[in-house]
């Protein structure tokens, strides 16, 4: 990725297209998103255990302040990224996905400034779900017969649809004045969480290198160490007496209730980190690396418009693997 983007220092001005901005914006969004996830959404919640005095308090305020700033930058970049991705879709004549994605971005911007009704929220949720479904269908209809990619996109979209079913039905019931509770909302929420675990395993199989190399697959020691550290930190935080960190990270930030056996989550997390590291290392897996980074920032339950935008960007990167790569090749050939 880094090599393909190198531009000679004294190169004459190139023919600029909005798509050429996409890699920069996406990597910046991922950086800002992960920063706000750790310093804002997580640290401010873990902060209930931090002594509120002296240097510790100052450090806490500084870090959460930086996280809050990163959150605002990430929300701005999320709009920029989604608009650029929509533009990329429009250029490649994918008009329906382009229209839906731009409508979602427009609604997200509008809702940031007005107090929307239940009907408006339902409409927003429908547009978001429609984008997901169209992108999943697009992945199956595309020329690239990449079965693992199709399977993964389907699993990711199924997880989001299952997690959004209860919320969407709730908004619809309110908008239509229907009484009674939404049937099956708990079951679908649990199913979505199981799908998240399945997605981690599927991604590992498809993109870690295991599928290509089989029994000869040997991940770099650094990758194994990174996965092991994350898994041990997660397990340690979960099992320790002061156990809030893992629970907060999983529930507040990712939307997972951890109702399945804990070892499943630990294994899935370790494999996810291994896959992420393998994708970052492979220039041909830039889209996957970005998507794998953005998905945890978006989380599962999508309780903010910002999270909807991140989820759509991630699914778009997974479903249409050409987006960033096209942008890079266009830039280098210009």
């Amino acid at each position: 990725m880094q090599k393909t983007l190198v531009i000679p220092a004294r190169a004459r001005p190139l023919a600029f297209s909005p798509q050429a901005l996409l890699p920069y914006i996406l990597w910046a969004l991922l950086t800002a998103g992960l920063t706000e996830l750790l310093l804002f959404r997580m640290l401010s919640r873990v902060g209930v255990h931090i002594p509120k005095e002296g240097a510790v308090q100052d450090g806490y305020n500084l870090l959460t302040g930086a996280g809050s700033y990163a959150f605002n930058v990430a929300t701005v970049l999320a709009f920029a990224a989604v608009v650029l991705l929509a533009h990329s879709l429009a250029v490649s004549r994918a008009r329906v996905p382009a229209a839906l994605v731009s409508a979602l971005a427009a609604l997200s911007l509008l809702f940031a400034f007005i107090e929307e009704s239940a009907g408006a929220r339902f409409a927003y949720g429908l547009v978001s779900a429609a984008v997901m479904v169209v992108l999943a269908a697009d992945a199956w209809a595309g020329g690239r017969k990449d079965v693992p990619r199709r399977l993964i996109v389907t699993l990711v979209v199924a997880a989001y649809l299952a997690s959004q079913y209860g919320t969407l039905a709730n908004h619809a019931y309110r908008a239509l004045g229907i009484g009674g509770s939404v049937p099956g909302s708990i079951g679908t929420l649990e199913a979505s969480e199981a799908l998240v675990v399945a997605v981690a395993f599927a991604m590992f199989w498809a993109w870690s290198g295991l599928r290509e190399e089989g029994w000869r697959w040997r991940p770099p020691l650094l990758h194994i160490a990174a996965a092991a550290v994350v898994a041990v930190v997660f397990l340690g935080a979960y099992a320790g007496e002061n156990s809030s960190t893992a629970a907060i990270l999983s529930l507040w930030t990712l939307g997972l209730t951890l109702y399945l056996p804990l070892p499943l989550y630990v294994l899935a997390l370790a494999l996810y980190v291994l896959t992420f590291a393998a994708c970052i290392r492979n220039p041909l897996r830039t889209n996957e690396a970005l998507a794998l980074g953005l998905l945890p920032v978006a989380g599962l339950t999508l309780e903010m418009t910002y999270q909807h935008l991140l989820a759509v960007a991630a699914v778009l990167l997974l479903a249409r693997a050409v987006a960033v790569e096209q942008a890079v090749s266009a830039e280098t050939s210009a």
Binding site: F79, S108, A112, E303, T305, Y306
Partner: peptide, 8 residues
């Protein structure tokens, strides 16, 4: 620059 879409 966000809006809540949580269950109400």
């Amino acid at each position: 620059l966000v809006s809540s879409q949580a269950m109400t």
